[in-house]
Amino acid sequence: MRARGTRRPAILRLLGQDRPAACAAGLLLLLVLAAVVAARLTGYAYDHQDLDHPFRGPEAGRWWLGTDQYGRDLLTRVLYGARVSLAVGSSAVAAESVVGVAWGTIAGFYGGRLDAALMRVVDLLIAFPSLLLAVLVTGIFGASLVNIVLALTMTAWPGMARTIRSEVVALRERDYLEAARGLGASPARILARHLIPNVVHLLGARATLDVSALILNEATLSFIGIGVQPPRPSWGLMISESFQFLQSHPYLVVVPATALSVTVVSFNLLGETLSEWLDPKLRQRTR
């Protein structure tokens, strides 16, 4: 409890020092809110077509950002797209964190042959470009939302496992772990009470950076046509659907592209600030 009491102002102070990161955090907060209330905000369903009014320009009170080729409200679709991107990104990061932390701590904690074997698997998977793995999974097993999350999880967890393992290896020989072992704590207890709490800070920074990478990968899959399927909107899918109208109605591409880029840049900025702040070595240097 005390840790939380001292940490929260520290984060606020950090954001005060780092203007770009503060902007990024604010933007993301707004985005999450907008994505949650999406339909209430605009009053349209994401697949509501109005074929009498395609390609309308922005009109306050009716279509704030205009309509697409089927007369669907662009703002509604961008907001629902945010919902899909954030939901897919965060569930994949959650799943990735569970697998990565479990794998990394077990490998780092037990060491020896088990460590070597577990980390070979990680090396193997990291050597592959993430998109290719995702293409294999969604390409063969179909592009349902669950499969997309699974595919993205598969691409991301090895990196997480490697980060966590190296930290656990560094922590393993610390005195307080020695003390816990001397007191007769079981390996399970040492893992759960002493090791995992001490790698959580790394997890936070890495997960934030991974959200941006995974959102980008989801958008890419959807753009190619093997991610989110129509009529459900996703930023990548919206860009690909409107690509043919690039000359006549560029805003149909520009709006989702901006939303996607701003989101990804924000997560990157926030993630980098967090990892700098959470890494004690870097913290000493910057302050």
């Binding site: 941006s212 980008l216 958008a219 890419t220 753009f223 990548g236 860009i239 690909s240 690509f243 690039l246 000359q247 560029p250 591409v253 520009v254 592209a257 996607l260 880029s261 990804v264 840049v265 990157n268 900025l269």
Partner: peptide, 22 residues
């Protein structure tokens, strides 16, 4: 660098096609 790592290739592609080709 941050822009290059964050902006997806299909967005860069769209912008470049729009400007240089169209």
């Amino acid at each position: 660098v941050i822009a290059g790592l964050s902006v997806p290739s299909f967005v860069t592609g769209a912008i470049l096609v729009l400007l240089f080709a169209l």
